[in-house]
Design a protein around this nucleic acid. Structure first.
Lengths: 115, 115
DNA sequence: CAAGATACCTTGACAGGCGAGGTATCTTGT
DNA sequence: ACAAGATACCTCGCCTGTCAAGGTATCTTG
């Protein structure tokens, strides 16, 4: 629970799209790579993960196909679309803006005294 | 709407507490100061604002009292408690950690290759 | 006296996260 | 042969925070 999930809320889609920029991948593996990147401090809950896949597919950001594994559990691979890349770019820009904004808002300083 | 509210979600409490660290203040004015700090790019919706006040008061982070204005609309002032200051500190720490984590997760790089 | 600003509040809907539960396959140990 | 665990997918229903829409009351200005 270390990190409040509300702080991550709204980033789920961005996180997933980022994992698909370089190559197609499947859900289980995507989540593993997220855990690795955060040294186990964070993982998407399965329900969250698969909900996000549906959402992203519905909005045309990703497409999916079944892998042709001859052995082991079936895997549904996801592929990012051009729309998805555009969306990813927008989300990154939004994040940068939001980050700055939040930093400005949680400061205790009296005045911006801006300009 | 410029900034998706889901990106700010979970920061509302922190933002409000930050505005109360230096002095008591009332809702309307707090929201004004938020707009000023972001040059009009962001504001809390009233419903969100007052919901947050209830939440923070219930959890002992703030207390409230009616101002003694002789004229104009009544104002309910909010004051941060010691608990609130502690919580604020924790939230700031959480934010720093979350910020780093998100940055790490939305990068497109293949490997952390970290240490 | 209407309009707009100040200042507060509540209700109900909505969306995203997630706990809990489920399915099916393969591997390993006994 | 079979139980246990890992891999890999999925859905249902609840919870929580946000917010559109509506409301109240006061003061100022034209």
């Amino acid at each position: 629970m270390s990190i409040a999930s509300d702080l991550i809320r709204g980033h789920t889609d961005t996180i997933i799209l980022a994992r698909l920029i370089n190559s197609d991948n499947y859900g289980y593996e995507i989540n593993k790579s997220i855990q690795q990147r955060t040294n186990g401090k964070y993982e998407l809950k399965e329900a969250t993960l698969y909900t996000a896949f549906r959402r992203l597919e519905q909005s045309g950001c990703i497409t999916s196909y079944w892998g042709d594994e001859q052995t082991g559990a079936r895997r549904r691979y996801y592929s990012i679309t051009d729309t998805g890349r555009d969306t990813y770019g927008t989300l990154i820009t939004d994040w940068k803006a939001a980050k700055e904004m939040i930093d400005k808002l949680i400061e205790t300083g009296e005045e911006d005294n801006g300009r």
